[in-house]
Structures are given as C-alpha cells and as structure tokens.
Design a binder for these strands. Structure first.
Lengths: 233, 233
DNA sequence: ACATATCAAGTCATCTAATCACTTAACGGC
DNA sequence: GCCGTTAAGTGATTAGATGACTTGATATGT
C-alpha cells in the first residue's frame, strides 16, 4: 500500500478551482464560470473537470445547479464538516456523540451568557417561540426547531469554529434522534429546559446557563439510553 | 435560488455505493469492485460513475488507487471531518481555532487521566520520546510529532467523536502553525509542557492534566498572537 | 399595464467509445 | 532465490455527441 500517490489531473484541477475562487475574491453564493468555459480555460475535457467539481461539491466548496451554473458554496470557509456519508451510527457512537455535546455545549452556553446582547437575544427568543408552535406538530419540524435553538446558542458564544463543530455534530445527529423523540412528555420537557437555558443567557448568568445546558443534555442522553435499551414499537 | 434540487443519477450512485459498502460489511481498507464492473452493475458509464466516486473520495469514504482499484476509506465511519479545501484561514480564525481547542482539549486530558492504563500510557510515552528526537530537527517533523501527542491524548480520553473533532481541528491547523513555530525556545517549552501533561495523566491526576493542558494551549495561543502581530522575516 | 405562455439560448448531466498510464501477478532466465 | 519482462487488469482521460433543466426575452391575452 503506497503512502504517496501520484497527483492526478483531477487533483490539480481541484486546486486550480480553489485558487480561482480565492484569487477571484468570491464569496459564498457567487456564480463561477460555466463548465464549458472552465474546461476550455484549463484545457481539459468536461468529464475530467466534473470529477474535480464533484469533489468540491461533496465538501461544500461549490454548488452545481442543473441548467443554472456553478456557485461558491457556504462551506468554503469552514474548518470542520459533518460527514455527508454518515447513514447509520455504530452501537455506542450515538452516546459518544451526546457525551461530546455534553463536553462542548455547556461552556458555549456560558460564553453566550457572557456576551449576548439585544438583537442576539431577540433572535434566540424568536427561535424558541417558533419551536413552541411545533409542540403539537410533526416530529421533524419540532426536532428541526430544537436543533436550531442549539445552533443559535452556539453561534451566540462567538466562536465560529466551535459553532461549526456543534453544527456538524447536530447535523449528523439529526436523523438518528428524529426517530427517537416521539413522546409528548419529552417534547414539553425539552422545551422547558430550553426556556430555562435562554433565561440564564438573557440574565447574563454564565454559571446557570452552563449548568442548565449540561443538565438538559444529560437528560437527553438519559432518554436516549433508555430508548436504545427498549426500542419503541 | 431553489432549495429543493432534483437528485441526479450521480447522487443516486453515491447512495448505491454507500449501500454496497454497508451491506457488503466492508471495513476500511477492503477492496471494492472495479469501476468497469461497477458501471456495468449500475448500468451507467464510467465518467458518470467516477463523478460519484470522486464525491466519496473527497469525504474519505473511499480511496482510488490508479492501476490497483478502489478501497474503502478510513473516514467512512467518521461523524466529523476536517475541511480538505481549507488553504488559508481568515484573520481571527486561527485564534478562534485555538480557543476552540482550549475549550475541548483540557476536559479530554482530564478524561485521559481518569481512564488511561498501561499500554495506553506506554504508547503516549513513546510519542513524546519520538518528539524529543526531533527537537533539533526539521520543523515539519517536530510539528507532526507534537500534533501526534495531542491526538494520542484525545484518543486516550475514550470518546471517538471528540477524538475526531480534535483530529479535525489539528489537521486544518497543521499548515498554519508549521510556518509559525520556528524558534528553538518554543520547541523546548512545548516539549516540557507536553511532558508535564503526560506526568499528570500517568499519575491519574485529572485536575492537573486539565489545568496543564489549558495552560499549555494558552501559551501556544499567546505565542501565536505575538507572531500574528509581528510576522517573522 | 399586468399576467401568462412560449421560445431560444445557455447551462448542467450523461452517454459512447476509445486510448493512455499504472499496478500486480506470473513466468522465464540466471 | 532474485531480477527482469510481459500480460492482464485497473484507474485516468479524451473527444464528441445528445438529453434535461433554467433563465431571460418576447408575444399574446385580459
């Protein structure tokens, strides 16, 4: 098994595209040249170019829209990505994911409590208000609203790298948890715990925010542990 | 900008490949069918199949070796990935990365101190011994050895998800830091701080391990802050 | 004037069929 | 047993074409 592989033309094209995006000062959402123009500019055929483009697409650097064009993707500047190929977690991996969240999210709640201000707090309130409207609705929508609360809290902490980490963990966590949260009691308890965390953040009480987030995630973990031992019908 | 895009054949092929890997019980390193066989089996042409394969390759699910075949990649089971497209960090991003490490790595050192045993500790000792041989050597090798120490410590914490997070952060951190650590004094201080962390882990002293890791990373951050304000010649 | 339908041009998506470059295993010679 | 050569299998790329989609412009109807 060779550790050093020869760079392919397709590898080089990937680099050329990244360079083009960078030197062109392109931001997420900007349109890039068409595949025809790019294949001519780089003097390669379109299937070869498309290989490079698929690679960039898979990692969020570009978006390819059929009939429209190629656009710079939102993840171009990220450091950390959720694995898009994750379909099923190994036994125990979900619990490790929750433990990871228990390590990372409480300090973030504390950071949010220390630094969040007017507009930020109003936005977080809106997120929770939106979540409340889903308490009697579809699982998927409630779940999404709850994840939005966690994402918004991580964002308020003011560290983009940690926000990316939390976002990544929540993204891969998505489908697994959606199947599990199916009892009304958990919905309301979740919501109340989110409210308590928000109150601590609004009050600027870093210690309470951290403790409440940790307790909330420990609750979630406990529920999931039970579910893993007694799957619902 | 449409939020719902039509799935392409190439998208479907990506899913088919993931399914083939999963239902085949393939582990990282296992060889998969050739592109010729796969394109026949899925009734598509090789350029189309190769688009899907490049996507999977970019996210670590497979490795394509010219002349040899396609192999299941090491990242197939990961939840979190380093962004392979990261070439240059925005201003401030490196400091945020360090702050992220300051949040995550100290609790991991504490976890390692609580749970590491004989073989684990011996391996960590070997990592530091190896790093010591590079103190007078090339920057790249010393840097790699130092990163290995951090990775090994995160592994000893016993949470694979957090290990992936740390690995991802260290991976994207790599090239940036390599250019900065160029003074002998920092090399020795780094090494001594790593030794102190190891001793706390060996002693099973979770509090000391955590405090020393936090102090070490704060030192690293301080050095980097100075370098960012006064770039070396 | 505004709304709707149609069309043309540009764009991405996929195909067909071939050749080129690399790896690995088998075989022969020393 | 070791080394060199060859053949077979494999990934990598090309050239040229067609099909499917999007977007903007134009024409038509109310």
């Amino acid at each position: 098994m060779s550790e050093v592989t020869r760079p392919t033309l397709s590898d080089a094209l990937t680099e050329r595209m990244l360079e083009l995006i960078r030197t062109g000062g392109h931001r997420p959402g900007d349109r890039l040249p068409s595949t025809r123009e790019l294949s001519q500019r780089f003097a390669v055929t379109t299937p070869t170019l498309r290989e490079a483009l698929r690679r960039l697409e898979a990692t969020g650097a570009i978006e390819m829209r059929h009939g429209s064009g190629i656009y710079v993707g939102p993840a171009i500047e990220r450091l950390v990505l959720p694995n898009p190929n994750m379909r099923e977690m190994r036994g125990g991996q979900l619990l490790e994911l929750l433990d990871a969240r228990i390590v990372i999210e409480p300090p973030l709640a504390a950071m949010a409590a220390r630094r969040a201000r007017g507009d930020d707090l109003a936005a977080l309130e809106r997120v929770l208000g939106e979540a409340a409207t889903h308490l009697r609705g579809e699982d998927a929508e409630l779940h999404e609203a709850n994840m939005t609360f966690h994402r918004a809290t991580a964002r308020l902490a003011g560290n983009s790298v940690l926000h990316e980490v939390v976002d990544s963990l929540l993204t891969v966590h998505g489908a697994e948890q959606r199947e599990i949260l199916q009892i009304f009691d958990d919905r309301r308890r979740d919501h109340e715990e989110h409210r308590a965390i928000l109150q601590a953040i609004v009050a600027g009480d870093a210690t309470a925010a951290e403790d409440r987030m940790r307790a909330h995630l420990a609750d979630v973990k406990s529920v999931i542990e039970q579910r893993l031992h007694q799957p619902p019908k």
